[in-house]
Design a protein around this nucleic acid. Structure first.
Lengths: 225, 225
DNA sequence: ATTCTTTTTCATAGATTCTTCAGGGAGATA
DNA sequence: TATCTCCCTGAAGAATCTATGAAAAAGAAT
């Protein structure tokens, strides 16, 4: 699965390296910027940055400006790094919509812990995404991405695929599928599953081959790992 | 409007008074508890506590225990107060799901600022203006701007659009919509939603297309990032 | 009380999806 | 290889759901 992207903005490369090393260890993908303009560039280029660590003191465009600029179009969590704890600064920061405020020097462990606390909180509201070999299912949004591209599925097709992904690698009998994807009181033809599987496979392109037929039994979604 | 409730837990009444005074000034309603058990009592009695300020050091049941207990059933934001900054403690706290960690002695101003930052983040109700791809909703003014131009919506239409924007990107079943936009005791025809959606879409012009129909399911407001 | 606006209901046309079915094809078994 | 069983496919009708317009009902405003 893709790692979570964090943008680290600081004019000192030593500081960037320090933060990057710790975040990489915690399995984040780090994107760096050495000044405010570069930060904005990076932010608008990468559409899926999950959090920004932003130094206040920078030449040209300082952290406040960057923050204000980003806040005009996005709610991405922002953590501010400042040379020392200045209550006034901190107040200003919160008013600008800064999520967290850490004063240098700080312990990298604490930084990581705070980042994770914020991401946990933000992601709680956010959608849980099931991922299985390039098939991404967003249950909340009722949407499926295959290799990053949206695929239009009907209601039943979506339910069926979700069931497959949630039970990937497990051989599923038709009876089991009927009982779980259809209502318990459905007593129609089990062949109807075949038809849905057919449509699913065709809409899924290459990835359709991941739905294996188990002869005399049912179906299984192949896991590749 | 009802004030936001904050539960303050500390065994020192002087400390509770200090915090209460500042929070009251900022127009919060403060509920106090002098020990862990009282805290849980208060928390379960008041169903709508928005945030908890929790002292670590307390007799009988300490802050960590209270935190763990509450986290087993709720995600209400928790701010921990501790005697002095101990990195180990802080790490433990974040693992337990503590949102913020402030060491005594602290400046009440900072406490208030952090509380507001967290509430801003957690509680979308606090947001002044909701914005979503050119749809701007000012809940206080009960007004909607689309591409900067005001759009006249009826009460129900406004409520419905707000609900969509607050849950943008999430597939919303008719049942869910009825339960949230209408009262829980409304048992009318779910088709009434269709009619409102129709009117909304037509009043929203091009942006109306952002309200997607999810066949057999409900509706969804498309997010464009 | 009357008028106007908003909300809800309702019927129907239109669109989409689900199910069924039968024939051809593929896998299993001996 | 022969044969049997099961699966895939495509098409078409059945079933389900949505959009729409109009009109009734309920509330507000005058």
């Amino acid at each position: 699965m893709d790692r979570v992207k964090i943008l680290v903005v600081d004019d000192e490369s030593r500081m960037r390296k320090l933060v990057r090393d710790f975040l990489t260890k915690s399995n984040y993908e780090v994107i760096e910027a050495g000044d405010g303009e570069a930060a904005l560039d990076q932010f608008y280029t990468h559409k899926d940055i999950a959090l920004i660590v932003l130094d206040v003191m920078m030449p040209k465009m300082d952290g406040w400006q960057v923050c204000r600029e980003i806040r005009s179009s996005s709610r991405v969590p922002i953590i501010m790094l400042t040379a020392r704890a200045d209550e006034q600064d901190e107040l200003q920061g919160f008013q600008l919509g800064v999520d967290e405020y850490i004063s240098k020097p700080f312990s990298p462990k604490i930084l990581v812990a705070r980042i994770e606390a914020i991401l946990r909180r933000t992601n709680q509201m956010n959608e849980e995404i099931l991922d299985c070999g390039g098939i991404q299912i967003n249950k909340a949004a009722h949407q499926v991405l295959i290799d990053g591209k949206p695929v239009e599925l009907s209601y039943k097709e979506f339910e069926l695929l979700t069931y497959f992904v949630e039970n990937r690698g497990i051989a599923l009998s038709r009876e089991k599928i009927l009982n779980n994807v259809w209502n318990y009181d459905y007593f129609g033809d089990a062949r109807t599953i075949d038809t849905h599987v057919k449509k699913l496979r065709s809409k899924m392109g290459e990835k359709g081959e991941l739905i294996k037929t188990i002869w005399g039994m049912g179906y299984k979604l192949e896991v590749d790992r």
